[in-house]
């Protein structure tokens, strides 16, 4: 059992195995199941992610009408134009948005690590898939690598917006995706660790301020930012850039920032964007209630 990223990395180096392999072996131990069984279980989650992206790219709309249709706009734009940020990056963004639009529409998704942050990991995965042409097993391994880092964050800090803000959800999800992109691209476990640290550092302090308490505004677009951040940081790590602050210390910082964040900015819909004039007007309209005076 690894308790932190340093121990995870030590196992990979001592045994000469990948991060995904460490997670697969630990899961076989914990569940007392065969490799075939745990791989199969993850394969089914991967299938759910593929279905959600497909559904989102065909166009969905939430009950509130606040979100939906942006994934389609992005795909259309990519077909008609040369996107400034590059096709791969925008593909990741569109697939992250697609997943969260389906989630907001109460569709079926796989939480990675949460529902509100469910777009980052599949967004990054399905975008790099077109470039790297992975096997099905490599795609399943992508999810185990993501999961290994999420496991450390969940046990040492938090993956809950109500407890740690958006940095704990989209921040963690983006960083998990980043580490997995590195492994899929052939980077060393150490580079996955650097990618995770770089991504999470860039998401520190992000508050959870959902308009009307719905997992829509700004959650859907935050997943777009998370997925792109993941891929850019993966490239940085693959280029040999390292984080001056060790990965476990970044996770510790995220935890402490979350603890000191005011409750109004932790999934209570009382601060940030939720408390803007437009945010409050939208909430009043959605719930059919008069606008509360400050």
């Amino acid at each position: 059992m690894f308790r932190n990223v340093a121990e995870l990395l030590e196992i990979t180096e001592k045994q000469g195995i990948s991060i995904s392999e460490v997670m697969i072996q630990q899961e076989m131990d914990v569940q007392e199941k065969s490799r075939h069984e745990v791989m199969g279980q993850m394969d089914r989650n991967l299938q759910v992610m593929e279905d959600a992206v497909e559904q989102g790219l065909s166009g969905v709309s939430s009950h509130s009408g606040l979100t939906g249709g942006d994934a389609v706009l992005l795909q259309t734009y990519m077909n008609d134009h040369q996107p400034l940020s590059g096709t791969l990056l925008l593909d990741a963004v569109s697939k992250a948005v697609a997943t969260n639009e389906v989630n907001a529409a109460m569709g079926t998704i796989c939480a990675t690590p949460t529902a509100g942050s469910a777009g980052c990991v599949p967004g990054a995965l399905f975008a790099v898939k077109n470039r790297l042409q992975p096997t099905r097993e490599q795609m399943i391994r992508f999810l185990f690598t993501s999961g290994a880092f999420g496991y450390v964050v969940a046990n040492n800090a938090s993956i809950s917006g109500a407890a740690g803000g958006c940095q704990a959800e989209v921040g963690s999800a983006a960083a998990m995706a980043s580490a997995a992109v590195v492994e899929m691209a052939g980077g060393a476990p150490k580079q996955s660790v650097e990618a995770f640290a770089i991504t999470l550092k860039n998401m520190l302090g992000l508050v959870c301020d959902p308009v009307a308490g719905l997992v829509e505004v700004p959650c859907v677009k935050r997943n777009a930012a998370g997925a792109s951040n993941a891929i850019v940081s993966a490239d940085m790590a693959l280029a040999g850039i390292t984080s001056r602050i060790p990965c476990d210390e970044v996770i510790g910082a995220m935890y402490r920032i979350g603890r000191s964040m005011p409750t109004a900015l932790k999934e209570t819909a009382e601060g940030g964007l939720a408390a803007t004039p437009t945010g409050r007007a939208l909430a009043a309209k959605i719930y059919g209630m008069p606008l509360e005076k400050e």
Partner: peptide, 16 residues
């Protein structure tokens, strides 16, 4: 379990 992190498969919109 890793499936606490990559999962559950669920109806949206919020895992918690």
């Amino acid at each position: 379990s890793v499936f606490d992190i990559i999962g559950p498969v669920m109806i949206g919109p919020s895992s918690s």
